[in-house]
Design a protein around this nucleic acid. Structure first.
Lengths: 186, 186
DNA sequence: CTTGTCATGTAAGAGGTTACATGATTCG
DNA sequence: CGAATCATGTAACCTCTTACATGACAAG
């Protein structure tokens, strides 16, 4: 899996410019990349070279010229092939867990402050994503089949659940820490 | 958060060589890096330059010479400072979700095969980690305080739960897909 | 006699990030 | 009058990965 396939997939919904793709990717919860120019504009050049997309230059009055990219038949075939490929494992990289591994050096108030900051940050992320989904913001499959809608729903349930589980976990950690008295507490 | 702090943290438990660190990191579920030489040996040079660790060359009979690294007081201060730093968000990057976003093109058998492969892979990962934890393999805090043990337990609960939730999710997706008949199924 | 362990190190490259550069238009 | 939007592109850099290189010894 790489961003080129994601771009190819987005272009399979509709022809778009690099700028459009940048916005979609940077505002998306699913497409987790930052949406930086370097990567997107370079990917488009590469996809074009490989004849998976075509480029159409559109001159606009009072706005900059833009390049609209359209997926080709070869591109659709590549996308289908990739969709069938062996799934990657999710990347579970939680630096906070590593930080916690040495948190025992901290005093009780420092610790509680640290855990509290993490809880707050996770909650903000969860609320943000919940709001975005309620606004129907990312529902690119609204015009798809019933099955496509089902998958779309499951994808976003997965993302929200991950944040919800993390929030539940940190709250449980804090609750236990309050309730249990450790004899060697600093 | 970066691997240098993780290395510093591991060295706060006991003095180790680069080779030892490589093994610990590559076999760990918590320290998610690959454990490649380039990163570890380079980090040790940098930590040494910054006087956060000291180096002791140990000649061994019938084995290669090794370099044992010990954390300094300055290193411990840096570790403590970092432990208090603002927590990073977990990196939730699941390429499989992106793959699913275009899975509607697939036929029912292709789809079921794809979802099945993902379920199998997640289950393998979960079982592997469960086994490692049952073997007490990663319990570096076995000699720590009661509070340190509590954190260690919570850290590994978090990691296992992430895989368990992913497994539950994919099973639920497959169950619903079997039970619901989509009118536009291919 | 080949594979694995101990032990250090380097090279090359993929993938990703922030920041810079340009320039017209529109909105507050 | 300054900031945001539209739109493309480049430069510099960081992190991390795989693979290569060396060499002795132990075990199957």
């Amino acid at each position: 899996m790489d961003i080129q396939h994601a771009i190819l997939g987005i272009l399979s919904w509709q022809p778009l410019s690099g700028y459009d793709l940048k916005k979609i990717i940077s505002e998306s919860d699913l497409f987790y990349w930052s949406g930086n120019n370097n990567q997107i504009y370079y990917s488009l050049v590469e996809l074009h070279k490989a004849e998976l997309i075509t480029q159409e230059i559109q001159h606009q009055e009072s706005l900059p010229t833009k390049k609209k990219y359209t997926i080709t038949e070869k591109g659709r075939a590549e996308l289908r092939k990739w969709t069938l490929a062996n799934p990657d494992l999710p990347e579970l990289r939680n630096n906070f867990l590593i930080q916690l591994a040495w948190a025992d050096q901290l005093s009780q108030p420092e610790m509680d402050d640290l855990l509290g900051r993490y809880e707050d940050e996770i909650e903000i992320q969860l609320r943000m994503r919940q709001a975005r989904q309620q606004a129907g913001y990312q529902n690119n499959a609204s015009d798809g089949t019933a099955r496509a809608k089902f998958f779309w729903k499951k994808i976003f349930e997965n993302i929200l659940a991950a944040y919800q589980h993390e929030l539940d976990w940190i709250r449980e950690v804090r609750r236990e820490l309050r309730d249990v008295n450790f004899p060697d507490e600093i």
